[in-house]
Design a protein around this nucleic acid. Sequence first.
DNA 1: CACTTGACCTGTCCGC
DNA 2: TGCGGACAGGTCAAGT
Length: 302
Amino acid sequence: MPELPEVETVRVGLQSLIVGKTIKSIDSNWAKSFSVDTPEVDRFVIGSKISAIRRRAKVILIDLDSGYTLIIHLKMTGQLVFVPSAQKNQSSKAEGRKEERFGAGHPNDSLRGKLPDRSTRVTFVFNDKSTLYFNDQRKFGWVKLVESQKVESQKFISKLGPEPLSDDFTFDVFYGRLQKRKGSAIKAVLLDQSVLAGVGNIYADESLWASSIHPSEVIKNISDSRLKKLHTEIIYVLKLSIEKGGSTDKNYVNAEGKKGSYLEFAKVFRREKLPCPRCGTTIEKIRVAGRGTHVCPKCQKA
DNA sequence: CACTTGACCTGTCCGC
DNA sequence: TGCGGACAGGTCAAGT
C-alpha cells in the first residue's frame, strides 16, 4: 500500500526528524528484513551520521556520512516511525514539558510505550536515545546497505522507469513507453515499475477512473487523447495524495505515526457498491492483472 | 516475448 | 465458538 505519495510523506517526515542524528545501535529480529550481524553494519552504519533522506519510486534512501546508504522498501505493510527520546522527568509536569519540547500535540509523543510492538522488525537507536522503528506486519519489506555511489546501479533501482512527478515525465516519454506494451491491459502497465515508478494499486485505479479508461483495456485501443488525459491525471492524483498525507487503508502511517486522509477523496478505490461520483452507476470490484480493481462499468468504457 | 501464477508473510474477515 | 479459506497487494522468479 505504501505507493509514491505514502513513501514521499514518510521521506519528508524523516527529513525533519532524523537528519543529523548519529546511529548508536541497530537491532533486528528478522534477518530477512535486515541482517545487522555483518562487518559492513559495524563499520559503516554504527557511529555514522544521517546526511540526507531521499526517495526513488517506492523506496526510501537514507544516506550516511560513511558513504553508505540504507535502502528501505516498505512493500505492503512497512512503516518507519520515529519516537523521540524519553523525558528524564516523567513527573506530573511532564505534559507541559513535552509540549515545550516537541510542540503541542506532537503525535510521536503518544507513541512512546506503544513501540516496539510485535510488528517491529528493525530498531535504529540514535545517540540522543531517540529511535526509528521499522515495523512490517507481513515481513515483505526489506532494508539493504549499499555504497552510496552504487545505489543507482542496484538491480532494483536501475530497472525503474521515470519518476512521475519529475520534469522528465513528459507525455512524450509516457507515450513512448506505452507503445512497447500495446497489447497489454493499461492497468498492468501502470503497475509495472519499469514503465513508470511509484504507481501502485490505489493510484492506478484512481487515475484510470479520472481519465475514463477501463483498467483492462489494452493500450492499442485507447485513443491518444485519453492517454494524454491519463498522463495528466496520474500526476494530479499523486500530487493530491501527497497533499493529503497519502492513503491509509489499514497499516500505513507516516514517520510521526499518523494516518493519511487521501481515501476520503478517492473516487473508486475501496468504494465498491457505492455510486460512481460521475454518473451514479454502482462501482464494481473486479480482478485485473491479478489485483483487486475498482471500476465504474458505465463511464470507464471497456 | 507477453502474460499469469506462485512465493514471500501475517492478520482479518466470511461462511459453515 | 472454531476453523478453513479467501483476501489484502509490491515485487521477483518461475511457468505457460
